Amino acid sequence: MTNRFSHLRTVMISLVAAVSALLMLVGLGGCGHAQQSTASSAKLTPVTFMLWWTPDTNHIGVYTALNKGYYRDAGLDVSIVAAAQAGSEQAVENGAADFTLSTMTNLANYSTQGAHLKEVLQVQQKPSAIWCSLASNTAIKSPKDFDGKTFATFGSSESDAVVREMIRHDGGKGNFDKVTVGTSTFQTLESGRADFGGFYDTWEGVQSRMNGPALNCFTEPDYGIPGNADTIGLVTSDKLIKKDPELVRKFVQATKKGYEYAYAHPDDASEILVHEAKDANLELDMVKTSMKTITDGDYWGPRNDSSFVFGTPDTAGAQQYFDFLAKNGAYEDADGHTLTKAPQATDVSTSEFLK
Protein backbone atom coordinates (compact mmCIF):
# COMPACT_ATOMS: atom_id res chain seq x y z
CA MET A 1 0.00 0.00 0.00
CA THR A 2 1.23 3.44 -0.83
CA ASN A 3 0.32 7.12 -0.81
CA ARG A 4 1.57 9.19 2.12
CA PHE A 5 4.01 6.40 2.81
CA SER A 6 5.08 6.21 -0.84
CA HIS A 7 8.74 6.92 -0.13
CA LEU A 8 8.87 3.30 0.99
CA ARG A 9 8.26 2.40 -2.63
CA THR A 10 11.30 4.42 -3.77
CA VAL A 11 13.53 2.89 -1.11
CA MET A 12 12.46 -0.67 -1.82
CA ILE A 13 12.45 -0.31 -5.61
CA SER A 14 16.11 0.71 -5.47
CA LEU A 15 16.82 -2.60 -3.73
CA VAL A 16 15.06 -4.71 -6.34
CA ALA A 17 15.56 -2.60 -9.46
CA ALA A 18 18.09 -4.94 -11.04
CA VAL A 19 15.91 -7.98 -10.48
CA SER A 20 12.81 -6.18 -11.74
CA ALA A 21 14.61 -5.01 -14.84
CA LEU A 22 15.74 -8.55 -15.62
CA LEU A 23 12.22 -9.87 -15.15
CA MET A 24 10.84 -7.20 -17.43
CA LEU A 25 13.30 -8.18 -20.13
CA VAL A 26 11.90 -11.68 -20.18
CA GLY A 27 8.33 -10.38 -20.17
CA LEU A 28 7.46 -11.27 -16.58
CA GLY A 29 7.88 -7.97 -14.79
CA GLY A 30 7.64 -9.81 -11.46
CA CYS A 31 3.95 -10.33 -12.10
CA GLY A 32 3.34 -13.97 -12.95
CA HIS A 33 1.11 -14.33 -16.02
CA ALA A 34 1.28 -10.62 -16.59
CA GLN A 35 0.82 -10.52 -20.35
CA GLN A 36 -2.00 -11.77 -22.53
CA SER A 37 -0.48 -14.27 -24.94
CA THR A 38 -3.10 -15.37 -27.40
CA ALA A 39 -3.03 -16.29 -31.06
CA SER A 40 -5.10 -13.21 -31.84
CA SER A 41 -2.97 -10.79 -29.79
CA ALA A 42 -1.56 -9.28 -32.99
CA LYS A 43 -5.05 -7.87 -33.67
CA LEU A 44 -5.26 -6.32 -30.22
CA THR A 45 -4.10 -2.87 -29.18
CA PRO A 46 -1.08 -3.08 -26.85
CA VAL A 47 -1.46 -1.36 -23.47
CA THR A 48 1.06 -1.17 -20.64
CA PHE A 49 -0.07 -1.06 -17.02
CA MET A 50 2.72 -0.33 -14.53
CA LEU A 51 2.45 -1.55 -10.96
CA TRP A 52 2.30 1.19 -8.36
CA TRP A 53 4.59 -0.83 -6.12
CA THR A 54 4.32 -4.61 -5.80
CA PRO A 55 1.14 -6.64 -6.44
CA ASP A 56 -1.39 -6.33 -3.61
CA THR A 57 -5.15 -5.96 -3.21
CA ASN A 58 -4.99 -2.43 -4.61
CA HIS A 59 -4.12 -4.04 -7.95
CA ILE A 60 -6.52 -6.97 -7.73
CA GLY A 61 -9.04 -5.58 -10.23
CA VAL A 62 -6.40 -5.29 -12.94
CA TYR A 63 -5.26 -8.88 -12.47
CA THR A 64 -8.88 -10.03 -12.38
CA ALA A 65 -9.68 -8.21 -15.62
CA LEU A 66 -6.64 -9.83 -17.23
CA ASN A 67 -7.51 -13.30 -15.96
CA LYS A 68 -11.19 -13.07 -16.93
CA GLY A 69 -10.41 -11.88 -20.44
CA TYR A 70 -12.09 -8.50 -20.00
CA TYR A 71 -9.19 -6.69 -21.66
CA ARG A 72 -9.03 -9.14 -24.55
CA ASP A 73 -12.79 -8.77 -25.04
CA ALA A 74 -12.26 -5.00 -25.24
CA GLY A 75 -9.63 -5.47 -27.96
CA LEU A 76 -6.67 -4.77 -25.68
CA ASP A 77 -3.41 -6.69 -25.23
CA VAL A 78 -2.45 -5.66 -21.69
CA SER A 79 1.01 -6.14 -20.20
CA ILE A 80 1.59 -5.61 -16.48
CA VAL A 81 5.15 -4.45 -15.78
CA ALA A 82 7.16 -3.81 -12.64
CA ALA A 83 7.23 -0.35 -11.10
CA ALA A 84 9.91 1.99 -12.40
CA GLN A 85 12.59 3.13 -9.98
CA ALA A 86 11.58 6.76 -10.49
CA GLY A 87 7.95 5.94 -9.73
CA SER A 88 5.04 4.72 -11.83
CA GLU A 89 3.42 8.16 -11.99
CA GLN A 90 6.55 9.54 -13.64
CA ALA A 91 6.55 6.62 -16.09
CA VAL A 92 2.97 7.45 -17.13
CA GLU A 93 3.79 11.14 -17.37
CA ASN A 94 6.68 10.51 -19.76
CA GLY A 95 4.86 7.84 -21.78
CA ALA A 96 6.85 4.81 -20.62
CA ALA A 97 3.56 3.30 -19.38
CA ASP A 98 -0.06 3.97 -20.27
CA PHE A 99 -1.70 3.43 -16.87
CA THR A 100 -0.85 2.91 -13.22
CA LEU A 101 -2.46 3.30 -9.81
CA SER A 102 -2.04 6.35 -7.63
CA THR A 103 -4.17 8.79 -5.64
CA MET A 104 -5.57 12.22 -6.34
CA THR A 105 -3.40 13.36 -3.44
CA ASN A 106 -0.26 12.26 -5.26
CA LEU A 107 -1.48 13.71 -8.56
CA ALA A 108 -2.11 17.05 -6.87
CA ASN A 109 1.47 17.03 -5.62
CA TYR A 110 2.78 16.14 -9.06
CA SER A 111 0.67 18.87 -10.65
CA THR A 112 2.47 21.52 -8.60
CA GLN A 113 5.67 20.28 -10.25
CA GLY A 114 4.22 20.58 -13.76
CA ALA A 115 2.90 17.06 -14.37
CA HIS A 116 -0.36 16.43 -16.26
CA LEU A 117 -2.00 13.27 -14.90
CA LYS A 118 -5.59 12.29 -14.24
CA GLU A 119 -7.37 9.70 -12.16
CA VAL A 120 -9.95 8.08 -14.43
CA LEU A 121 -11.37 5.46 -12.04
CA GLN A 122 -11.32 5.82 -8.26
CA VAL A 123 -11.21 2.48 -6.48
CA GLN A 124 -10.92 3.41 -2.80
CA GLN A 125 -13.62 5.71 -1.51
CA LYS A 126 -12.57 6.32 2.12
CA PRO A 127 -9.36 6.74 4.14
CA SER A 128 -7.54 3.61 5.28
CA ALA A 129 -4.43 5.19 6.83
CA ILE A 130 -3.76 4.34 10.46
CA TRP A 131 -1.18 5.91 12.76
CA CYS A 132 0.15 3.41 15.24
CA SER A 133 2.53 2.56 18.02
CA LEU A 134 3.38 -0.91 19.18
CA ALA A 135 0.72 -2.20 21.56
CA SER A 136 3.54 -2.97 23.98
CA ASN A 137 4.33 0.76 24.20
CA THR A 138 1.91 1.55 27.03
CA ALA A 139 3.04 5.20 27.18
CA ILE A 140 0.96 5.90 24.03
CA LYS A 141 -2.79 5.75 24.56
CA SER A 142 -3.97 8.37 22.02
CA PRO A 143 -2.38 10.74 19.47
CA LYS A 144 -1.59 13.43 22.05
CA ASP A 145 0.92 10.94 23.45
CA PHE A 146 2.88 11.21 20.17
CA ASP A 147 4.07 14.58 21.54
CA GLY A 148 7.80 14.45 22.17
CA LYS A 149 8.04 10.96 20.66
CA THR A 150 9.84 9.86 17.49
CA PHE A 151 7.96 9.44 14.21
CA ALA A 152 9.14 6.78 11.73
CA THR A 153 8.80 8.78 8.53
CA PHE A 154 9.58 8.48 4.84
CA GLY A 155 10.21 12.22 4.69
CA SER A 156 6.83 13.54 3.55
CA SER A 157 5.71 17.04 4.59
CA GLU A 158 2.18 15.72 4.07
CA SER A 159 2.63 13.10 6.79
CA ASP A 160 4.11 15.71 9.12
CA ALA A 161 1.03 17.90 8.67
CA VAL A 162 -1.33 15.01 9.37
CA VAL A 163 0.48 13.82 12.50
CA ARG A 164 0.79 17.36 13.85
CA GLU A 165 -2.92 18.03 13.40
CA MET A 166 -3.94 14.72 14.99
CA ILE A 167 -1.80 15.49 18.05
CA ARG A 168 -3.19 19.00 18.40
CA HIS A 169 -6.77 17.86 17.88
CA ASP A 170 -6.25 15.42 20.76
CA GLY A 171 -4.95 18.15 23.06
CA GLY A 172 -1.21 17.94 22.46
CA LYS A 173 1.26 20.52 21.15
CA GLY A 174 2.20 18.80 17.90
CA ASN A 175 5.92 18.50 18.58
CA PHE A 176 7.74 15.30 17.63
CA ASP A 177 11.12 14.04 16.51
CA LYS A 178 11.63 12.09 13.28
CA VAL A 179 13.75 9.24 12.01
CA THR A 180 13.83 8.15 8.38
CA VAL A 181 12.59 4.61 7.82
CA GLY A 182 14.81 2.21 5.91
CA THR A 183 12.73 -0.67 4.58
CA SER A 184 10.14 -1.42 7.27
CA THR A 185 8.20 0.72 9.70
CA PHE A 186 7.49 -2.42 11.72
CA GLN A 187 11.23 -3.05 12.12
CA THR A 188 11.91 0.57 12.98
CA LEU A 189 9.37 0.49 15.80
CA GLU A 190 10.52 -2.88 17.08
CA SER A 191 14.14 -1.73 17.12
CA GLY A 192 13.20 1.18 19.39
CA ARG A 193 14.44 3.79 16.90
CA ALA A 194 10.93 5.25 16.66
CA ASP A 195 7.73 5.26 18.70
CA PHE A 196 5.03 5.52 16.02
CA GLY A 197 4.49 5.43 12.28
CA GLY A 198 1.96 5.27 9.47
CA PHE A 199 0.37 2.14 8.01
CA TYR A 200 -2.69 1.10 5.99
CA ASP A 201 -5.43 -0.84 7.73
CA THR A 202 -6.26 -2.88 4.61
CA TRP A 203 -2.71 -4.26 4.28
CA GLU A 204 -0.23 -3.64 7.11
CA GLY A 205 -3.12 -3.61 9.57
CA VAL A 206 -4.08 -7.05 8.32
CA GLN A 207 -0.49 -8.19 8.57
CA SER A 208 -0.33 -7.00 12.18
CA ARG A 209 -3.56 -8.73 13.15
CA MET A 210 -2.52 -11.98 11.48
CA ASN A 211 1.17 -12.19 12.26
CA GLY A 212 2.05 -9.36 14.63
CA PRO A 213 3.47 -7.23 16.00
CA ALA A 214 0.30 -6.00 17.72
CA LEU A 215 -0.38 -2.31 17.14
CA ASN A 216 -2.32 0.46 18.89
CA CYS A 217 -3.76 2.57 16.08
CA PHE A 218 -5.68 5.79 15.46
CA THR A 219 -7.58 6.87 12.34
CA GLU A 220 -7.54 10.32 10.77
CA PRO A 221 -11.27 11.13 10.68
CA ASP A 222 -11.42 10.62 14.47
CA TYR A 223 -8.69 13.21 15.03
CA GLY A 224 -9.46 16.20 12.87
CA ILE A 225 -8.16 15.30 9.41
CA PRO A 226 -10.77 16.38 6.84
CA GLY A 227 -11.72 14.72 3.58
CA ASN A 228 -10.21 11.67 1.92
CA ALA A 229 -6.47 11.38 1.43
CA ASP A 230 -6.55 7.80 0.16
CA THR A 231 -8.31 8.20 -3.18
CA ILE A 232 -6.53 5.25 -4.78
CA GLY A 233 -7.47 4.69 -8.39
CA LEU A 234 -6.51 4.21 -12.03
CA VAL A 235 -4.32 6.94 -13.51
CA THR A 236 -3.30 7.95 -17.01
CA SER A 237 -1.86 11.04 -18.67
CA ASP A 238 -3.70 13.99 -20.15
CA LYS A 239 -1.62 13.34 -23.26
CA LEU A 240 -3.05 9.84 -23.77
CA ILE A 241 -6.58 11.06 -23.03
CA LYS A 242 -6.22 13.64 -25.79
CA LYS A 243 -4.48 11.27 -28.21
CA ASP A 244 -6.68 8.18 -27.84
CA PRO A 245 -9.76 8.69 -25.63
CA GLU A 246 -11.36 5.48 -26.96
CA LEU A 247 -8.42 3.39 -25.76
CA VAL A 248 -8.70 5.03 -22.34
CA ARG A 249 -12.43 4.31 -22.27
CA LYS A 250 -11.93 0.63 -23.18
CA PHE A 251 -9.26 0.16 -20.53
CA VAL A 252 -11.27 1.95 -17.85
CA GLN A 253 -14.43 -0.02 -18.58
CA ALA A 254 -12.62 -3.39 -18.56
CA THR A 255 -10.71 -2.50 -15.39
CA LYS A 256 -13.91 -1.31 -13.71
CA LYS A 257 -15.44 -4.69 -14.50
CA GLY A 258 -12.44 -6.41 -12.91
CA TYR A 259 -12.72 -4.45 -9.67
CA GLU A 260 -16.48 -4.91 -9.52
CA TYR A 261 -16.00 -8.67 -9.87
CA ALA A 262 -13.36 -8.64 -7.12
CA TYR A 263 -15.66 -6.62 -4.82
CA ALA A 264 -18.50 -9.09 -5.39
CA HIS A 265 -16.32 -12.24 -5.32
CA PRO A 266 -13.38 -11.39 -3.03
CA ASP A 267 -12.20 -14.95 -2.35
CA ASP A 268 -12.16 -15.90 -6.02
CA ALA A 269 -10.38 -12.66 -6.93
CA SER A 270 -7.84 -13.32 -4.17
CA GLU A 271 -7.00 -16.67 -5.74
CA ILE A 272 -6.69 -14.98 -9.13
CA LEU A 273 -4.25 -12.39 -7.74
CA VAL A 274 -2.06 -15.02 -6.08
CA HIS A 275 -2.10 -17.13 -9.27
CA GLU A 276 -1.43 -14.30 -11.72
CA ALA A 277 1.23 -12.58 -9.59
CA LYS A 278 3.19 -15.73 -8.78
CA ASP A 279 6.54 -13.98 -8.44
CA ALA A 280 5.17 -11.75 -5.69
CA ASN A 281 4.82 -14.83 -3.43
CA LEU A 282 1.62 -13.54 -1.89
CA GLU A 283 0.03 -15.56 0.91
CA LEU A 284 -3.54 -16.48 -0.02
CA ASP A 285 -4.82 -16.09 3.55
CA MET A 286 -3.31 -12.61 3.76
CA VAL A 287 -4.89 -11.56 0.46
CA LYS A 288 -8.28 -13.00 1.41
CA THR A 289 -8.19 -11.26 4.79
CA SER A 290 -7.23 -7.98 3.14
CA MET A 291 -10.17 -8.31 0.76
CA LYS A 292 -12.49 -9.14 3.66
CA THR A 293 -11.33 -5.96 5.40
CA ILE A 294 -12.03 -4.01 2.22
CA THR A 295 -15.48 -5.48 1.65
CA ASP A 296 -16.57 -5.41 5.29
CA GLY A 297 -15.52 -1.77 5.51
CA ASP A 298 -17.09 -0.77 2.17
CA TYR A 299 -13.73 0.79 1.29
CA TRP A 300 -14.49 0.69 -2.43
CA GLY A 301 -17.92 2.23 -2.04
CA PRO A 302 -21.34 1.25 -0.66
CA ARG A 303 -22.14 -2.20 -2.02
CA ASN A 304 -25.86 -1.96 -1.23
CA ASP A 305 -26.46 1.45 -2.79
CA SER A 306 -27.72 1.07 -6.35
CA SER A 307 -27.23 4.79 -6.97
CA PHE A 308 -23.47 4.56 -6.45
CA VAL A 309 -21.46 4.26 -9.68
CA PHE A 310 -18.32 2.25 -9.00
CA GLY A 311 -15.20 4.25 -9.76
CA THR A 312 -16.70 7.71 -9.26
CA PRO A 313 -14.03 10.19 -8.10
CA ASP A 314 -14.61 11.69 -4.66
CA THR A 315 -13.60 15.20 -5.64
CA ALA A 316 -15.32 16.76 -2.61
CA GLY A 317 -13.42 14.58 -0.14
CA ALA A 318 -10.16 15.01 -2.01
CA GLN A 319 -10.55 18.79 -2.12
CA GLN A 320 -11.14 19.00 1.62
CA TYR A 321 -7.85 17.20 2.13
CA PHE A 322 -6.01 19.35 -0.45
CA ASP A 323 -7.23 22.51 1.30
CA PHE A 324 -6.02 21.15 4.63
CA LEU A 325 -2.57 20.47 3.18
CA ALA A 326 -2.35 23.92 1.58
CA LYS A 327 -3.29 25.54 4.89
CA ASN A 328 -0.43 23.63 6.50
CA GLY A 329 2.15 24.58 3.84
CA ALA A 330 2.59 21.09 2.41
CA TYR A 331 2.64 22.12 -1.28
CA GLU A 332 5.68 23.43 -3.15
CA ASP A 333 6.21 24.45 -6.77
CA ALA A 334 9.04 23.20 -8.96
CA ASP A 335 11.35 25.87 -7.50
CA GLY A 336 10.70 24.85 -3.91
CA HIS A 337 8.43 27.78 -3.06
CA THR A 338 5.56 27.04 -0.68
CA LEU A 339 2.14 27.31 -2.31
CA THR A 340 -0.78 28.71 -0.36
CA LYS A 341 -3.45 27.85 -2.95
CA ALA A 342 -4.50 24.21 -3.08
CA PRO A 343 -4.59 22.24 -6.34
CA GLN A 344 -8.10 21.44 -7.55
CA ALA A 345 -9.39 17.88 -7.39
CA THR A 346 -11.46 18.45 -10.51
CA ASP A 347 -8.23 19.16 -12.41
CA VAL A 348 -6.67 15.79 -11.53
CA SER A 349 -9.68 13.51 -12.01
CA THR A 350 -12.51 12.80 -14.41
CA SER A 351 -15.54 10.54 -14.52
CA GLU A 352 -16.06 10.78 -18.30
CA PHE A 353 -14.76 7.28 -19.02
CA LEU A 354 -17.07 5.56 -16.53
CA LYS A 355 -20.06 6.15 -18.78
Rank of each mutant, 00 (worst) to 15 (best):
K178W: 07
S156K: 08
M166F: 03
V162M: 06
L189I: 11
T188E: 14
S159I: 03
F186C: 06
A152R: 04
G172L: 00
G172K: 00
G182K: 13
F151E: 04
T188D: 11
R164D: 07
V163Y: 02
A161P: 02
R168L: 04
E190Q: 15
N175R: 09
G172W: 00
K178L: 07
V163Q: 00
E158L: 11
I167N: 00
S159F: 04
D170Q: 02
G155M: 09
V163T: 06
D170I: 00
V162K: 02
L189C: 08
V181D: 06
F151D: 02
T188Q: 15
S157Q: 07
F186N: 11
L189E: 09
E165H: 11
G182W: 04
G172T: 00
K178C: 09
T180W: 06
L189V: 10
R168E: 07
F186T: 07
Q187Y: 09
A161Y: 01
V162I: 15
V181G: 08
G174M: 04
S191D: 08
L189K: 07
T188I: 09
G155Y: 13
G155N: 12
D170E: 06
H169T: 12
K178R: 14
T153N: 07
T185Y: 06
F151K: 01
E165Q: 15
T180Q: 14
T180L: 15
G182L: 13
K178T: 15
D160W: 05
A161H: 01
D170Y: 02
L189M: 12
V181E: 14
H169M: 05
D177Q: 13
S157F: 05
T185F: 09
K173M: 02
S159P: 04
A161S: 08
M166W: 00
D160Q: 08
V179Q: 12
M166D: 02
G174N: 11
R164C: 05
G155W: 13
F154A: 06
G172A: 03
E158C: 04
T180A: 12
T183I: 14
G174T: 02
T185I: 15
E190G: 13
G155H: 12
Q187H: 14
I167D: 01
S156I: 05
S191K: 10
F186E: 06
G171H: 02
S157G: 02
F176Y: 10
